[in-house]
């Protein structure tokens, strides 16, 4: 009996070892960072398996960039440019970041479907997000308090929105702060007075997308893959993958695949615009 125990525990130990160290032969690449780039990375990972084991993890652009600086990930995903301090820190750490544009994201301005408002300008958005306008009636809507919904300050989506629309000023303290695109979509879809912003990949029938223009003169444009590619839609931004040095080996295979026509079709499938027009 005793012997049996020893053998079975040995076997179990070996099995656990097998789980911890998967079979050699397939190359492993890790992705960490922006939750906006995450759906793309996920589709790439599925398409690359089993030749390349591409394991993906969210955490936000700041987390991803910190990981590439610390050398704890092969590829960082980011929905914003690297900050100068981050670049300097990377170089000081012996890391040379190479930044690859893999997709174009489009931030859609969304409200609850019961809200009759059709269009909005950057100026209106600033007044709402600075807390100067607090009722929809001011903008020609119903007499209903505006519930301002923002992403958390560590998300790249927030960074882009703040930089492009809010001219780098702070969102009002009275806003709700959501820690993911999904939480943002759920909150706006369940709150009649809410306004928020989500990536194109998160648009759903339970959200109403507003036409957007930089100024009141227009033109007011709806967020879609087509308007992002044609650069008509104002609130678009590039999405990046960052590698340490010029990619080699398995990392190069991932990046090359992401930029290929096949990879760019996956970008489209994830709900983002590809970086170039694709041949049919």
């Amino acid at each position: 009996m005793k012997k049996l125990h020893i053998w079975s525990s040995l076997l179990l130990g070996l099995a656990l070892l097998g789980v911890a160290f998967p079979a050699a032969g397939s190359d492993e690449v890790t992705y960490k960072g922006s939750t906006t780039v995450l759906p793309i990375a996920g589709l790439l990972s599925e398409a690359l398996a089993p030749n390349v084991v591409f394991s993906v993890q969210g955490g936000g652009s700041g987390t991803g960039i910190a990981a590439i600086i610390d050398g704890t990930t092969d590829i960082a995903g980011s929905s914003r440019y690297m900050k100068l301090e981050e670049f300097e820190k990377a170089v000081a750490n012996g890391v040379m970041p190479y930044v690859w544009e893999v997709a174009i994201d489009t931030l859609a301005i969304v409200v609850h479907p019961s809200n009759p408002i059709e269009q909005i300008t950057y100026e209106d958005l600033r007044r709402i997000y600075f807390g100067e306008v607090t009722n929809w009636s001011v903008l020609g809507g119903p007499d209903m308090p505006i519930v301002v919904v923002s992403r958390d300050t560590s998300s790249g989506t927030y960074g882009t929105f703040k930089e492009v629309v809010l001219e780098n000023q702070e969102v009002t303290d009275g806003a709700l702060f959501q820690s993911s695109n999904g939480a943002m979509a759920t909150t706006v879809a369940s709150t009649p007075g809410a306004i928020g912003y989500v990536g194109l990949g998160y648009l759903q029938p339970s959200l109403r997308t507003l036409l957007l223009a930089k100024t009141a003169e227009g033109p007011f444009v709806g967020a879609s893959v087509e308007t992002a590619l044609s650069l008509e839609y104002p609130l678009s931004r590039p999405l990046f993958m960052i590698t340490n040095g010029y990619p080699q080996g398995a990392v190069a295979r991932v990046i090359r695949f992401a930029l290929s026509d096949e990879g760019q079709r996956l970008v489209l499938e994830a709900g983002y615009a590809p970086i170039r027009a694709l041949s049919e």
């Binding site: 700041g62 560590s154 009275g174």
Partner: peptide
């Protein structure tokens, strides 16, 4: 009214704060 607790504050902002 919406509130932010200490724990939520740390979780929301830790990722963006440069170390």
């Amino acid at each position: 009214r919406p509130v932010r607790t200490l724990t939520a504050g740390i979780a929301l902002e830790m990722a963006e704060a440069p170390s």
